[in-house]
Amino acid sequence: MPILTWPVSEESALVHEQFDDIGQQREAAKLGMWIFLATEVLFFGGLFLSYTVYRFAYGHVFVEASRKLDVVIGGANTAVLLISSLLMAFAVRASKLDQRRMLTGLLLGTALLGCMFMSLKGVEYHKDYVDHLVPRMGFKWEGADPGNAELFYWIYFAMTGLHAIHVTVGIGILLVLALLAWRKTFSNGNHNTVEIAGLYWHFVDIVWCFLFPLLYLVGHR
């Protein structure tokens, strides 16, 4: 251990040994998260690509199939996620300002809105099941081309399902962070974790901004 001959500020105590200073450490964490989000873009990208290909191939059936989805629940969920993103942005701000109570409350509020999103999604999935829209589970289609209508719902459930898994993971992260925030883990400049969790949450919001118009508002209603 080298003998420290200079005064140690609170922030430099947070720096791990592989980093020169706190700024570099924070930048590295954000860069890592953005690279992870780039892989997530491609993860969802594969599904968006299959949606695009089949939409161009069977556009008319996709429009018909899309009209059976509940646009009110879908739209309300968009608003819920947007407001949760607003709370998350304020949570990151509170963590930087070292406002522990505010941070804990905002993280819990964001998680609560995430739970609200998932509940609405659950109601919607149940409605889809009752309306015989779930592929392989009593799927019934009165109109033309039932095979490709079913294909639309496969894509719908794959995309919204993968997104719902991301929201669930996000809620878990937010609840753990809320507990840690309450225990003063993020005090005195140690806000990196909250900031990159925020990036993840906003990303999940962005994905829904594309899913809502593409799945619920295909063509015109």
Partner: peptide, 27 residues
């Protein structure tokens, strides 16, 4: 504004744009 790309470093701008670029190549 929420993810603070405005005001962050060029390196983060690059990482954010890279994900979209690869998606455009894929599509």
């Amino acid at each position: 504004f929420f993810m603070h790309i405005k005001g962050s470093s060029r390196l983060l701008h690059l990482a954010a744009v890279a994900g979209v670029m690869w998606l455009l190549i894929l599509i």
